[in-house]
């Protein structure tokens, strides 16, 4: 019986490694080897190109802004959905998750419809000289949209498992909302929260479809890194395209390492508490 179990164990582990190797590692290796195909000098030149740097800065700007907005939203939404009972809670929960399953193309399209030239509010925007679509705000909006539920989704299960007893007790003793949150709730969700932030930032950096609809592809102005990759690819500059991709791959890996560390520390801490 134990022998059979061991066989099953290593078989399953083998399958897992094979699957992850073929589906995730090989594509990454492809990106890196293609990027370095013509030597390091070409690689360095590609990633220090003026437009690459500008695209990187824009990507960071969009990712940071989106993460900040979603952090604010995620905290409030998670608090609302786990600490209170009210009508329409399920519906609200579904609406918050909706952006995950909305096609990126549709995500881009809805912002073009809302803020583009045929929208009712376009004349107003034009008067105020605010550009949203085909400009940086549109890119940020699209990024916020696609990463919208990332933080609240991480927080809700933790808060739900924790229940509301402690907060109720504190409230009955007269503590204010912010104090309760800071002293009681936040320590519980600290790690889940950080984990959500990291994921949100990672996803924000890599968004392609929605941003592509909204960007206008203005070189050096509204091109994010993923769009810059597409442009280089379309210019038949394959090596630079993969070189720029490798920046994104490495950022993704760094972010995921941070995520693992965060999770590890969080787990150890919660084990120590027990």
């Amino acid at each position: 019986m134990r022998k059979e179990s061991k066989l099953v164990k290593w078989l399953l582990i083998g399958i897992s490694f094979l699957f992850i190797f073929v589906m995730l590692v090989l594509p990454l290796v492809t990106v890196i080897t293609e990027a370095l195909k013509q030597g390091f000098a070409v690689y360095a030149e590609a990633i220090s190109d003026k437009y690459t740097v500008k695209a990187l800065l824009l990507t960071l700007e969009a990712a940071v802004t989106a993460t900040v907005i979603n952090t604010i939203f995620g905290l409030f939404a998670a608090w609302l959905l786990t600490k209170f009972h009210f009508r329409g809670k399920k519906l609200l929960g579904s609406l918050i998750d909706l952006p995950v399953t909305v096609s990126p193309i549709i995500a881009g399209l809805i912002f073009v419809l809302t803020f583009g030239r045929q929208s009712a509010i376009y004349p107003l925007l034009e008067k105020l000289d605010i550009k949203i679509v085909f400009a940086v705000p549109g890119i940020i909006l699209a990024t916020v949209f696609v990463t919208f539920p990332f933080i609240s989704r991480e927080l809700i299960p933790v808060l739900e498992a924790e229940g509301t007893d402690e907060e109720e007790a504190a409230a009955l003793m007269g503590a204010g909302g912010f104090t309760i949150f800071r002293k009681i709730t936040f320590p519980h969700i600290k790690w889940a929260f950080l984990y959500g932030v990291v994921l949100c930032a990672a996803r924000a950096m890599g968004e392609f479809g929605a941003v592509s609809v909204l960007s206008g592809h203005l070189r050096g102005k509204t091109n994010t890194l993923p769009l810059h990759v597409e442009i280089l690819f379309n210019e038949f500059k394959y090596v630079p395209a993969f070189a720029v991709s490798s920046i994104l791959v490495m950022t993704a890996i760094v972010i995921l390492v941070i995520r693992s560390v965060v999770e590890y520390i969080g787990k150890r801490e919660s084990e120590n508490v027990h």
């Binding site: 897992s16 490694f17 992850i20 995730l24 590692v25 090989l26 594509p27 990454l28 492809t30 990106v31 293609e34 990126p104 994921l199 990672a202 996803r203 950096m205 890599g206 968004e207 392609f208 479809g209 890194l225 993923p226 990759v229 597409e230 690819f233 395209a241 991709s245 994104l248 791959v249 950022t251 993704a252 890996i253 972010i255 995921l256 390492v257 995520r259 693992s260 590890y264």
Partner: peptide, 27 residues
């Protein structure tokens, strides 16, 4: 290498879909 395997699961979130598409096509 359990931690590494675990850490890699979210990679598809973090990798731009266009990059993934190009890499998978050439593979």
């Amino acid at each position: 290498f359990k931690r590494i395997l675990d850490g890699m699961i979210e990679l598809p979130f973090a990798l731009p879909t266009a990059v993934a598409g190009i890499a998978l096509t050439s593979l």
